[in-house]
Amino acid sequence: MKKIIVGFNPLKWVTVVVYIFIFAPILVVILMSFHPQDIVSFPMPGFSFKWYAKFLSNENLLRALWVSLTLGLSAGCLAGVIGTLAAFAIVRSNLRIKAALNAVTFAPMVISGVVMGVAILSFFNAIGFPRGFFSLVVTHSLFSLPYVVVVVSARLAGFDRSLEEAAMNLGATPWQTFRSVTLPLIAPGIIGGMLLAFTISFDEFPATQFLSTPSTATVPIRIFSMIKTELNPQINVLATIMIVITIGVPLISEYFFRKK
């Protein structure tokens, strides 16, 4: 059934337009980061790295970047460990609660970040625990858990259990089997899930706004207030850096995830 598409195919062109719509905002920001003037204007009068230089001397933003990176790594690792264990529980155990657990794990994905944020704030407030880095790590790890669970479960579901049997048959104890066979083989999934968790954390704003303190202001917190108050072209630079990180990290994770 070979169709010869002659000339104009409306479906194709609609698709092209949608792709332009998808990429336009991202491209505009990257382009603007090289804008030479204080006031963003069109068409661009030239090309400069001026805002990159300014950004690199803006201590507030650099500190926020540091907070976001350490937060993302902590939350990613935490979600990685908890999510991997949970994925084992969901894929391999036959306990009754696993279906319920599976469903509840996905709740943070669909409940508004604002509501999650105020609820966790209320919780920490009720037990007299101050907001700040720790509360952010907890919250962000909760948000990233579903992603880790999905990725690691997928890897585990495709795991050939006879490999574990073979290892035990050759004399490896269950723990040695886990370390030498199971873990290395699902590691790409775990790393992929953790990197995805990092991305989620790195971009989280709705809940973060309730839990961060001035010393733990993350990049999204800074950007939000900058957008709200003045349109500082340094946002473009920060945005470009964030785009590079948030697109780069999943690409790396995709690499790990795909690798057999």
């Binding site: 050939d160 006879s162 490999l163 049997e165 073979a166 290892a167 035990m168 048959n169 050759l170 004399g171 490896a172 104890t173 269950p174 089997t177 066979v181 290395p184 083989l185 057999k260």
Partner: peptide
């Protein structure tokens, strides 16, 4: 006795060679 103490070597249907 657990499988790892039995000294019974096994050749699996799908070979179960460790791919990594």
């Amino acid at each position: 006795v657990p499988p790892y103490r039995r000294d019974a070597g096994m050749v699996f249907q799908n070979y179960a060679l460790f791919p990594h």
